[in-house]
Write a protein that binds this DNA or RNA. Structure first.
Lengths: 219, 219
DNA sequence: GTCTATAAAAGGATAGAC
DNA sequence: GTCTATCCTTTTATAGAC
């Protein structure tokens, strides 16, 4: 895969200059096609055209359609780790931190890219269960774990009354997904602009603050 | 479609005795195959085998794969209307009614049939947007509308403090879906038995009661 | 490694007999 | 209406030249 042939030094240099251009072209084209059409409706011919290479070139770099799909989707799942929950280590109030998390979460989870990725995960979870695991770990599970840690410190400081921090964190994100995320998944709603997102985040944080302000929960 | 030929009275009688057996066989087989494999992975040959008929018989009853798929999925969406929110016209407490609704909702929405149907709606919402509409209207939208009406009466009676009843109802169901529904969609979680469902319903109702017990919301 | 050409199979849809 | 046999397109994957 990384064996640079000695027979055509000029071509080898062209590859070395930006590190296997063809392979990156394939990945870029396949990412576009798979995210747009899903696994079944995407064809290797269409991917080859989108990448500007021939089909055989794809097969020289990947074992087949399944392997290419797994590589593409797995990479997109790993990217979910980046825009995580911002750390709230300052002296901001709980409500302020939750509101900031809410806005970031809504912006990320309702984005077109994210919605399309989740649609594909759901569509192909039978054929590629490992991808569902990767998505869940890198996305929802990671966000929940971070928020749970923060909520736990808030609970230990006596600011809120919750039982299981993980369950409390899951509830917060579930409230944020609300009805709009389901509609987005089904392609019903077009968009939610920043003002609407802020309003909804405010509504959820207000509701959540009341929910966790009460007596300790039995878990 | 319903024109019973006069040329073969015996066959015509066989059809009349239970009302077009072949058509029902096709629907049964297609329902099974489509819900199990989705649109793309299902083949007309496979459906014909599952139904115990020939391919041409399917084409005699339906215009093609698309029309058959739409008929099958649309019918399953219509069935969602049946197990709706139980009416709470008695003198039960708000909490009791919500708890009953929560249990019924969890049982229905987490069922294997319902999860598979929603997976297909999500997968094919690009090709069949009308089906997503049908699902949303018959399922989530219908449940929200019924709960919203109930919450509105509770608000007018001074029992709870909410802004938009529809938004309040959507929040309740979003809390119930929680994290578990997303996991089910991705095929990660196996099952939630009745005891676990009851515990989770209790947790959500408790949290929700606190959330709606506070001051009036700005919507 | 990369391309053109081709194999081999599967799937949607149709023809024609009964 | 129903079946068997067939057409035609699409699709994954491979062969062979350079």
């Amino acid at each position: 895969m990384d064996s640079r042939s000695e027979t055509h030094p000029i071509i080898a240099d062209a590859q070395a200059s930006n590190g296997s251009t063809k392979r990156q072209d394939i990945i870029a084209g396949a990412t576009d096609v798979f995210l747009r059409l899903g696994y079944g409706a995407a064809s290797m011919e269409g991917i080859a055209q989108a990448a500007g290479v021939s089909k055989q070139t794809i097969y020289a770099h990947f074992d087949g359609k399944d392997a290419l799909f797994e590589a593409i989707i797995h990479e997109k799942c790993d990217e979910l780790r980046i825009p995580a929950v911002p750390s709230g280590d300052t002296d901001e109030s709980l409500e302020t931190v939750l509101f900031r998390i809410a806005q970031a979460f809504l912006k990320s989870v309702l984005s077109r890219k994210n919605v399309r990725l989740f649609r594909i995960i759901v569509s192909e979870c039978g054929r590629f269960p490992e991808l569902a695991d990767a998505f869940y770990r890198s996305g929802p599970r990671s966000a929940v774990a971070q928020l749970a840690r923060y909520l736990e410190t808030a609970r230990d400081a006596g600011e809120i009354a919750i039982g299981d921090p993980v369950q409390a964190a899951e509830l917060f994100f579930a409230m944020l997904r609300g009805d709009i995320y389901m509609r987005r998944l089904m392609g019903i709603d077009t968009d939610m602009d920043e003002a609407e997102a802020a309003n909804y985040a405010r509504f959820v944080v207000d509701s959540y603050m009341r929910a966790v302000a009460g007596a300790t929960l039995a878990v």
